[in-house]
Amino acid sequence: ETWKYAFEEAMEEVQGKYAQKFKEVIEANSDHEIQLFPFGTLGESADIMEQAQAGILQFVDQSPGFTGSLIPEAQVFFVPYLLPTDQEQLARFYKNSKAVNEMFPELYAEQGLELLTMFPEGEVAMTTKEPVESCADLEGVKFRVMTNPLLVESYKAFGATPTPLPWGEVYGSLQTNIIQGQENPTFFLYSTKLYEVTDYITYAGHNNFTTAVMANKDFFDGLSEEDQQLVERAADEAYDYIVEYQKGLADSELKKIQEAKPEITVTTLSEEQRKCFKDAAADVEAKFIEMTGDSGKEILDQLKADLQAAAE
């Protein structure tokens, strides 16, 4: 059988690497073939999600931030300073978390999706035209964020002027100074060349980009037990692979950025400098609970407990 798998990034970016490994494991251990569809080839994130729900695609990778319009609780991953920046701790968290492995699958199942795995794509960095050392430096900075209420809330709380822009306009708008900042994981800054049009990269540790891989539920339920196990095994192996692949990825991509643009300034904020950002996080958490109610609060509390466990 031929299975189709679409994701939100290019073939050589993190989601693409995961998908390639997934394909490799499936094809090596069965007669099934997997066709991969990178970013844009079958539509935007929302389009491929719908196609997976309709059963046209067997597998889809959509980040919970985008899934927020379908499953509001998924936006929990946008609450700043919820997730730690330590890669190994994160890897343990996603693997063992009750929220990720038991609670979210139920929510996804209601949408006709079998949640296979969630994995981190790296710490989100801010890139700006002017140095950012405190919230005060974001004052009046038009900062591009994805169209997501929690992200907008976050950057408002940080003091910036959040400016939602379609992805295609980000590079040009930074170049002409319509916006003066944006955020993304380090590998993405390199692959999309956003460093070419900004001068400062700042790590405030406020977020880690999370993504999720799902299968169409009817398709998954209809598989033989053997195939189901194979899919789960491929998801696990690809997870281990992507965690390993990303070790040092942020550093090496950052090095490539610095080689391409030596004058770029990279700053990691100190605990003290982060204080105002962390204070702002409380507002965003409150907003998340306001938006998602009891079910959101339950997930948030469980996530916190799971993170506590992963920290030990």
């Binding site: 169209t147 209420p149 907008v152 002027t161 959040p162 939602p164 822009l165 379609p166």
Partner: peptide, 14 residues
């Protein structure tokens, strides 16, 4: 909104 009031209309694109 962006220039005078320092605040974008979040729903503009939608």
């Amino acid at each position: 909104g962006r220039f005078v009031f320092q605040s974008s209309l979040f729903f503009s694109e939608e």
